[in-house]
Every structure is written in C-alpha cells, then in structure tokens.
Design a protein around this nucleic acid. Structure first.
Lengths: 218, 218, 218, 218
DNA sequence: GATGAATGAGAATTCATTCAT
DNA sequence: TATGAATGAATTCTCATTCAT
C-alpha cells in the first residue's frame, strides 16, 4: 500500500496530489472486527467472559485500546459479538444437517450433530463449546445474549421437529405425540453432551449414540 | 444476640454497647454461614457470580463487611459455597430417587428427577437451576467449583447406571451396551431440560417425559 | 479512640465484647465531605473544573479514591458541590448586608458587597471569585450548577430590589422606574468587578465605588 | 476544490482520485481556518471548551482529522483562535461606537453597546456571549486567552474612559474623579448584563438602560 | 497536502479486602 | 468478635494527536 507519487502532478496549471482512497472500509472493517472477536474468543474460552479484561482482548488482538473501541463501543458489545459468533456455530451444524441427501433418523441426526460439535470444538482459536457454556450463563442476565441464544436454539430445535415428523410418518415413532416434545428431548441431549465432555471428559459421539441407540431399541 | 444493656456506656466521647456473645459458636457459625450463602445465592440467581459484588452480599445478608469476612476468607470461598450448596440439590434428587420402594424404569427415573428439579427450582430464595447454569460456566475455570460439580454429577449419573443395569437385567434395554453409556444419555437430558426451561421457557416434565416415552416406544 | 477491653467480660454465663459505636456518622460524614470539597476547591481555583482530575482531588484531599467515591458518586457531584459551596458565599454577602442596622443607599450597598467579596476572595483555600467564574461557564451546560447559580443570584438581586425601593421611597431615585431594572444594574456590577479584578487586576472597591459615586452625583 | 477526474484511477488494488490543488494558498488557508473556527465555535457555544472534543470539531467542520491538524497544531490553538474570534467582537462594538457622528453620553454609549451585544449574540453560528463566558473561565488558567481577553477589554474600557472625559468636560459628571474609575464601572456593567441574560434570561438593553438612567437621574 | 485508522497515555470509577475502633 | 470507613489496584473507556497511504 505505497503512496505512488511524492511530487505533485501538474496539469492545466493546477498541481495535483494523488490521494489513496483505500477500499479498506467495508472488508477491512469486517476483518478487523473478526480479528478482535477472535482474540476475545480465545480469552473467553480460557477465562470466561468476566475474567477476560479489555486489556486481555487488546493485547491478544495486537491492536491498541483506541482501535478496539473504534470497532466496538463497549465490552458488552464484544461479549455479544463473541456470543453471536459462537452461537453462529449452530448455523454450521444446521448446514451440515441439511447437506445430507437422505433424510436422517433421530439417532442419525444426533450423531451427525455430535460429531460436528466435536469438529467445531477442536478448531483452533478456542473451544466453541466452552464459549457456549459461558453464553448460557450470560444469557440469564444479558438480554442481547439471551435473544441470540434463544433464536438459534429454536432454529436448531426446529430441525429436530422435522426429524420427528418424518419418523412419525414412517411409523418409527409414535404418531400421537407432539413432535415438538420429541424435538425438546432430542435437542435437549446436546447441552448434556457438551457439559459432560467439558466437566467429566468421558463422553464421545460414539458412547452417546450407543447409549441412545440402546434406549431406543426395544 | 440479646442486648443486655439498653443504655450505652459512654467513655472517651464514644458510646459502647455491651452485647451478649453466645457460646453456641459451632451451630451459630454454621447458621451465619448459611445466612450469608442464602443472601449470596439470591443475588447470584439474579445477576450471576460476577455481577454479584461483595457489597451486594453484605447488604442482602444484613451483616457487616467484617462479619462476612469473618465467615468466608474471600469472595471465591463464597462462590464455592454457593456452588456447593446449589449442587447439594443433587443429593436431594438422589434421596428422592432412593426413597422410592419399587425400582424405576428409565422414563420413570427421569420423570421423577425432572419433577423434583422443578420443585427445587421453585423454592424461595433463588432458582437453583439458574445457579447451576452459573456453576457450569464457573466450573470451566474454577477448580473448586469444577471438583464439586464433577463429583456430584458422577454421583447422580451413577444412579442412572443402576437404572440402566436393572433395565438390562429385565430385558427392557439391550444388554450389550455399556450401561455407563446409557446413563450418559439419561443423565445428559437434565442440562438440556434446565436450559430449555430457562432460555426458551416451553418445556415441562410432562412434555419432556412424553417426548422421551414416544422415542422409546417402538 | 482506643478499644477499651481486649478480654471479654463474662457475666451471667455469657461472654461480652465491648463494641465501639462511633458517633462518627453524622458529623464525621459532613466533615469528610467538607474536606473533599475544600481539596477540590483549591484545585479548581487553580486549574478550573475540567483540568482538575479526580486524581488531583484525591491527592489533595489526602484520602483514597474509594473514600472520595464513598462521599460523592461522581466527579459531577463534586463539581456541583464546589459550585454550591462557592455560590454559598452569596448567602454570606447577604447576611453581611442584613446585619447592617441602618438601611443602605445603592452606593453603600454596592460598597459593602464589594468589600465583602474581596474579604471572601482572600480567604485561604482558593479564591472564591475564581470559582464563581468557573461556575458561570459551567452553568451554561450543567443544569445542576445553573439551578444553584440562578437561585442564588436571584436572591442577591432581590436584595438590591429592596435597596432600590427604599431609594425610590425617599426620593433619591426616580420612582417611575421598575425597581427590578435598577437592581439588575446594581447587581450587574458585581460580575464586571470580579472579572476586572481577576483579568486586569486594577480595580478595587475604592476605585469602583468612586466611579459609581461620580456617575450618580449630578 | 474541483475534482478533475470522475473515474478513479485504479492501481495496485487501490483506487485514486486526482484532486485539484488550487494555488490560492494564502486566502484558501484563511478560509479553511475560518471554517474550522466556525465549526469549533458552534460546538463551544453549546458545550463549552472542554466538553468539545476534537472529534466534534472535525465532524462539524466537515474536514478530516489530518486536515484540521494541518491548520492548527493543537486543540489549544483552536481554543485560542475561538477566543480571539469571539473577543474580536469587541472590535466590532468599538467600530460601531466610533461610527457615531455625535459624542455619546455614558448611558447612550452603554445602550449602544448592549444593543450591539444582542445583535452579535443573535447572529447564526453560536451565541458569542456564551463563548465570552467560556473565555472568562479559560483566561484564568490559559495565558494565551488571558492575553487576548485583557488587551481587548482594556481597549474597550479605554473607549469608556473617553466617554467619561467628555462627560466631565461638559460638566455632566464630577470632574474630580479619575475617569478610569468611571470607565471601570461603565465597562463593568457588560459582564453582568451578559451573565444575567444567559443565566436568568430577564434582562434586555431596554430594562438595563432604564435602570441605569434611573440611577443617574437625580 | 489530505485522509482517517490507529495510537496510548490518562481519566473516571469500582470493588474485594483490611483494620482501627 | 463486629463494624463499616477506608484502601488502592485494577478496570473500562476517552480523546488529542500521529502517520502510513
């Protein structure tokens, strides 16, 4: 990004300076925001939202205090952005599920989700599931986080409703039960999986799917 | 804590009250600790661990700063005590389950647990499940809370192992699957229930048990 | 303020500790507030409201940051308190005027006021008139200061209305003019005196009263 | 400031615009400075010197940060420029007074000045008198502003000395009093007028002149 | 010269904890 | 032991100013 001319051009009796109009703004701004969120995310995955100080985020992001505050008005906005970002993983789970050509069974859907959760958790830059757990706690007294969390979770749970409906249609599952209830249970297995993985460390998609399969098999 | 004298002694320009110091120390100490934890718990249920300040706890408990610090060395100790207290509810769930005369089926056990969770959550003094969610987040970077949480959760999950074994013994559940895996799934339904109840507000023991029953019914 | 007893009194089978109930609160609180305002005032007299930092006030007051914030919720509150305090000098001018046994003429009243302004300005702890000038500027965009200033100024101007009325009654001043207008002019000489004294340094009650007397003498 | 090219040059992934640099430098510079001072003045009239940030000035002026700093080395220089500009109104008062063909009486001179003060205050771009009040406060701890203010005020006061001399010459005013003292009082009525107008809002040239006339009439 | 993103010192404020009484 | 005023390090956020383009 070098300045091209140091000496003014002279044309029509006027001197001209060449001014860079960096296209920067749009993408650059987003990239910087992402950079900051990434820095913050890795702090939060380690220390939680509240032990993470702005100084941590600033240091980790490699920017200055002023720069960070140029992209986010407050720590709360960064917290919300991290939560959004982490809960955005839900969208990725969703895409993964919808990419499947054939319809999935309940167990199949759960297995797919669990495997993708593990995949996401192991991405570099801080375990998303750790952030999800922070987000659960935060959502209880932070309306912004609550709003994101509930909408994302309703979305994913909606997918399980669809799975339940199909299973009811082909007679695999009792057709008289509200598919929402079935989805509550299926979706409701995720937090328990995440929590046991983080706190007890002895679950895996394989053990979990095996356990569920055993329960479902008559 | 009776006052012996109603009229203050005045000496050196200061007034003094003479106050009875009951010898009860042992129980008294415990009562005081409980009083502080109760105060702190109701703050934490509303605001979370980190937004709850010592000043909040001190005000809510009706004691003085010095008094509170006489019973707890630090905020961290109070946090640990609240987590212990909240996770102690697990013991109550457990007692509830063991009190049953006849052995429970997986669905029955879950229903019993969910109903008791609701019962505990609705006790006055702050919803325990809100504190549990805070404790999950805290456990990720607070060893004391992590230790309590994991031991309690292993204990409760152990109960579900027992349930699974019984169901395998009487042929209700496939006997070739490790009962630990089955317990992971059964126990793993609790966090999802708690979370959906707090964040989405549309689950109940009835809907959940119906959903699970539909899944299990062939 | 020494603790009287180190060893518990034992009476009626109970042990007693003697607890100091410092009468502190009421007067002590006021004294501390005054101490902080005094510190702040001397800073403000030198540097103005905005160049005076909380760190300055804290250092000058000899207290800690926390202590200062225990008495004032914000810098704005301290600013308001200083303005109140400085504008409270108006009350002192007023008292001075009302203490006079015989009624004053316009020139006499002005002279008395100017002399007392000088007296107050020369008190140790920061020239009040410098703070008054800051308060004028502040009042233009600080509602709290504006409210105090306008009420105090109306009060003092009201005194001059009274002076004007008397002068009209005894025929010294034209009776057909609204005494409020006359008071506006009399009271309105004060800011100009204060300003010329601070910025030009060449006015005194003597020169000012001489000038006014010359104007009034036919 | 005409753009020669409508289509950006693109080079190295950046787009460039070529802009005409008028040779006008001298006037252009002054125009730009005036533009910046005007922007800053309207901010200061609303918020005072210290609440006005450079960001405010930059936004209001429509220029870039760099551009503003190209014309003023620091905020302090802008503050000084605004004060100079506002105190420059004194020159306008002065011109107004000297433009009168016949010599003025003290009351006449004051009336003329007050009326012109109102005229200036009501010009668009921020009430000059509000800025004057800020300048008074600033002059107490800003040598540049102090220097400008005192020289301007001495100048205007000098005019009143002249008025006083004339009145002494034609016997309207006692000849034994130093005309400087009389000027102190006459000039000293201005700040009180400005302040009462801004803080109390109930004075006008008419009420003020009426009040003064009543005082002077035997 | 012009731009505006970036800088970083410094400001206001909070809060866990202590300690004289 | 009990009190609660006091402490001061740590935290969030601002804003005058610079500098690569």
């Amino acid at each position: 990004m070098s300045l091209i001319l140091d000496t003014p051009l002279v044309k029509n009796g006027h001197s001209f300076y060449v001014r860079a109009m960096p296209k920067v703004t749009a993408e650059h701004r987003l990239a910087r925001r992402a950079q900051i969120v990434a820095a913050a995310r890795s702090c939060v995955a380690e220390q939680g939202f509240h032990k993470t100080t702005m100084a941590d985020v600033i240091r980790e992001s490699g920017l200055s205090a002023g720069a960070v505050y140029g992209y986010f008005k407050s720590k709360d906005e960064i917290v919300a952005a991290i939560a959004d970002d982490a809960l955005g993983s839900i969208d990725k789970l969703f895409d993964e599920l919808l990419a499947r050509p054939e319809p999935l069974t309940p167990v199949g859907a759960l297995q797919t989700v669990l495997e993708h959760v593990i995949f996401l958790a192991e991405q570099p830059g801080g375990d998303v599931t750790r952030i999800a757990v922070q987000a659960w706690a935060e959502a209880l007294h932070n309306e912004a986080v609550h709003a994101t969390a509930s909408s994302k979770y309703l979305l994913l749970r909606g997918y399980f409703v669809e799975i339940a409906r199909r299973a009811q249609a082909d007679g695999t599952i009792d057709a008289d039960t509200d598919p929402e209830y079935i989805a509550q249970v299926l979706f409701g297995m995720l937090p328990g999986f995440i929590l046991q993985r983080l706190l007890l460390g002895d679950v895996s998609p394989a053990t979990y799917t095996a356990g569920l399969a055993a329960l479902l098999r008559p």
